[in-house]
């Protein structure tokens, strides 16, 4: 069973001088699992991902990738990693093929295995039509797909994607979600996003961060409305939004029917925090 734990991070903290981005975070990922990392802006999602991929050293805590310690043996651990940062790390002056070949070589693939790996990643991310074009001339969506291709190229055990569907059109989003599900069967995938329905569509388990702490970490089976959980947890934890949450709670006590109306209004809207906040404020004013 131990072999099946691909990522094991314990007690991770990260300070930027005085500011503390992540506090005492524990994270586990098993093979065949897609973990969704959720949280409002500035919750520490990207910092966590940078630490897991060795781009940032944690202030405290340790990370094991596929049972190899990332801090003690970085090169061995990194060979099991594929990472797509927020901004796809692509060289704009190379063509798609040249870039993917370079990445394959960086990951130490054999000369003979490179063309096959490149062709496979290209196919999975539907990049065949643009393979000879310069990355600078591609649209944002295609650049994003090149970034994803780069992350899965060397068939890593752990794939970490920071907001993979940003800038994609609805068809591409569906394709990428299917791809993530496929990858999640053999590999372990960690995914961060703002889009709650996306988490419900692709993730097995979700870990919600708020102000650098884990506030929720559970599988999605049996969870009715992720949105409700998300807002409850984030409001509770945030003193600035505390009065909104208090008002909401108040209302629930006074008039259960109207609270239900509110919940119904929020859940199908799927417009993210902003829409919900507006609704909450409207209700607030109505009192």
């Amino acid at each position: 069973m131990e072999n099946d734990t691909l990522v094991k991070a314990t007690g991770l903290s990260r300070f930027y001088s005085d500011h503390c981005a992540v506090v005492d975070l524990n994270l586990q990922l098993r093979r065949g699992e897609v973990l969704g990392l959720l949280g409002p802006n500035g919750a520490g999602k990207s910092t966590t991902m940078q630490m897991l991929t060795g781009n940032l050293a944690p202030s405290t805590g340790e990370i094991q990738i596929n049972a190899v310690d990332l801090l003690d043996e970085p090169l061995a651990a990194k060979s099991h990693l594929g990472y797509l940062p927020e901004q796809p790390p692509v060289y704009r002056d190379l063509t798609v093929n040249e870039f993917l070949r370079y990445c394959a070589q960086l990951h130490g693939l054999n000369q003979s295995a490179v063309p096959e790996a490149v062709a496979r990643a290209r196919l999975r991310c539907s990049l065949d039509d643009v393979q000879h074009r310069l990355i600078a001339n591609l649209s944002k969506g295609f650049q994003q797909r090149v970034g994803i291709a780069q992350a899965i190229l060397h068939n890593p055990a752990v794939i970490i994607l920071d907001e993979p569907t940003v800038g994609l059109d609805p068809i591409q989003i569906r394709e990428i979600r299917t791809l993530i599900r496929e990858l999640g069967e053999e590999h372990g995938v960690i995914l961060s996003t703002h889009i709650l329905p996306e988490v419900q569509a692709v993730c097995d388990r979700v870990q919600i961060l708020n102000r650098g702490r884990t506030v929720f970490n559970d599988s999605l089976t049996g969870v009715g409305s992720l949105e409700k959980i998300f807002f409850d947890l984030v409001y509770q934890d945030d003193p600035a939004l505390g009065d909104v949450a208090a008002a909401e709670a108040n209302q629930m006590r006074l008039a259960p029917e109207s609270a239900e109306v509110l919940a119904e209004e929020v859940v199908p809207s799927q417009a993210g925090e902003q829409g919900a906040l507006k609704t909450a404020h409207k209700q607030d004013g109505a009192i």
């Binding site: 090169l75 060979s79 990472y83 790390p89 960086l106 990951h107």
Partner: peptide
């Protein structure tokens, strides 16, 4: 500037 350094940093390259 283009934030491509993370490509090299994530690869198993010192």
């Amino acid at each position: 500037m283009n934030q491509t350094l993370s490509l090299l940093r994530t690869a198993p390259v010192s």
